[in-house]
């Protein structure tokens, strides 16, 4: 059983909708979504992934053998119907994870109206940070329109496997985000071959073949730490000020 079980239980009777968004493509939204889903499922929770990327990478993963039974993948790209799709999903799963495409669209806006926690993956580059800033702004505006607080946090992705290595640009961006009062998750999602293998082989990290145990263990530790941070971010968003 995963260490996430206790935290998952704490969320019982509540169906958090977690959305991964960024107007920029290739920042690791889909990988982050899949890692979260796998971690939650291995922690004993039922998860519905709403694949809102027209390329349907998660639906493709879901069609391969090895998908945990607790994970359901549904495809939805209609910007209006996505509201009802998320609504239906939150009635049948404990977690709903929405993976949006890397583009600014009304689909993003409508999804945010149904979101508890929005996560904005970003790499340590100026291009990424510009688009991340746009994403944070869109979340704030959606909060106003929805007349409720939509919690959000950034997460650094595709970072070197070692936490100690960070470019000067990436460090300055991290400092700038912190100065802007935006929460970033402590755990970064590292650039790992095993994460790419997930989409090629299907299944979970533990099922991967042809990969060293050390690599898998490191990846699983990284994914578990990321999922814990996400749950903490959700809990802290509900904590009284």
């Amino acid at each position: 059983m995963s260490v996430l079980c206790n935290t998952c239980n704490a969320l019982e009777n509540n169906v958090p909708v977690i959305t991964l968004l960024s107007p920029k493509g290739g920042v690791g939204k889909t990988t982050a979504a899949l890692l979260l889903a796998i971690e939650f499922a291995e922690g004993g929770a039922t998860v519905t992934i709403v694949d809102a990327d027209p390329n349907f990478p998660l639906a493709k993963w879901g069609s391969m053998p090895g998908r945990p039974e607790r994970i359901e993948v549904v495809q939805e790209t209609d910007e209006d119907a996505i509201i009802d799709t998320i609504d239906a999903a939150q009635k049948r799963s404990r977690f709903v994870i929405v993976d949006l495409e890397g583009r600014a669209s009304a689909r993003v806006t409508n999804t945010l109206l149904m979101t508890h926690l929005a996560i904005v993956p970003m790499q340590g580059s100026v291009l990424d940070s510009d688009q991340a800033a746009r994403a944070f702004q869109s979340i704030r505006r959606a909060s106003k329109a929805a007349q409720r607080e939509i919690a959000f946090a950034g997460v650094f992705t595709r970072t070197p496997a070692s936490d100690r290595i960070r470019s000067r640009v990436a460090q300055q961006i991290a400092d700038s985000i912190q100065a802007g009062g935006i929460k970033t998750l402590d755990t970064s999602i590292a650039e790992r071959t095993v994460y790419r293998s997930l989409f090629a082989q299907g299944g979970t990290l533990g099922d991967l073949k042809g990969t060293s145990k050390t690599s898998i263990d490191s990846a699983r530790a990284n994914a578990a730490s990321f999922a814990r941070d996400v749950l903490e971010a959700m809990n802290s968003s509900k904590a009284p000020a």
Partner: peptide, 29 residues
């Protein structure tokens, strides 16, 4: 209370869509 999010009303959707469109989050339809 459970954290269920009810689908927003048409007014909220339209307002959010208008705000989003102003930032470039435009409709495909």
């Amino acid at each position: 209370e459970p954290d269920y999010i009810a689908p927003p009303s048409r007014e909220v959707r339209e307002q959010a869509k208008a705000v989003g469109a102003a930032m470039g989050f435009v409709s495909d339809k």
